[in-house]
């Protein structure tokens, strides 16, 4: 059961491990499949838990059952292998995100600068198309270079990424939103971009800005109703 669960997690398949607490009997339930012999009410309850990504214990016909939702890992894709990214990538890793750093400028995205982090020197739009951000993915652009950041944003805005943030002053952000609008995105789409990026905590150093960004990403995930698109002021 454990090896099977680990394989599902490695393959980024969402799955529920259902455990009958009195007996320790276990079943694995996914959206379309379930272990042989899974009781019907367990499968139904497990898929309910899966749908809202919420682990919990429930009382069913056979007794109390713990439904442990194992969702695919959270991901963060950072465009720009810059100084802030050198702080943000390890911090986000510690917070549970699988981080990929994308920068086509050869000298930036090197494994010496980002030990243990997946780096890509593809163009941001190609990289993002390949990585296919989902509702458990945050996209952060930090290059300050419109031809890199805008290309990434144009792809990210067509995905369900739960967080999109872009480095730049309020003035730069206004210019950016005008450029993005010319690409055919409406106001609601553009409002998804957090810019200036990061919570307003007065961050100045690269590491402080990284903390402000990561805090905003966490807020977007944990308290989505409060995380406004245009409230950040960090950078």
């Amino acid at each position: 059961m454990l090896e099977s669960l680990i394989a599902d997690r490695a393959a980024h398949r969402a799955v529920v491990l259902a455990t009958e607490l009195d007996t320790g009997r276990q079943w694995l339930v996914a959206a379309g499949t379930a272990s042989a012999g899974t009781p019907g009410d367990v499968a139904v309850a497990a898929r309910d838990a899966l749908a809202i990504d919420d682990s919990r214990a429930v009382d069913l016909a056979g007794g109390r059952v713990f439904l442990h939702v194992h969702s695919p890992p959270l991901r963060m894709i950072v465009i720009g292998a810059v100084h802030i990214t050198q702080a943000l990538a390890p911090m986000a890793t510690l917070a549970g995100y699988q981080v990929t750093v994308v920068d086509p400028r050869g000298a930036f995205a090197t494994s010496e600068r980002f030990p243990g982090i997946t780096v890509s020197d593809d163009w941001p739009d190609d990289a993002l198309e390949a990585l296919a951000p989902d509702s458990r993915t945050a996209v952060v652009t930090l290059t300050h270079d419109p031809k890199l950041d805008d290309a990434a944003l144009a792809v990210a805005l067509r995905t369900e990424a739960f967080y999109i943030g872009s480095l730049g002053s309020a003035k730069n952000h206004r210019a950016r939103t005008e450029r993005i609008a010319r690409l055919g995105f409406d106001e609601a789409a553009i409002a998804r971009i957090h810019g200036p990026v990061g919570l307003a905590i007065g961050a100045r150093s690269p590491a402080e800005i990284a903390i402000a960004i990561l805090a905003q990403v966490i807020e977007a995930r944990r308290r989505p109703a409060r995380a406004g698109g245009a409230e950040g002021r960090a950078a």
Partner: peptide
């Protein structure tokens, strides 16, 4: 729910 950095199951 399973975003622990430490790979407990592993």
């Amino acid at each position: 729910m399973s975003a622990d950095h430490e790979d407990i199951l592993g």
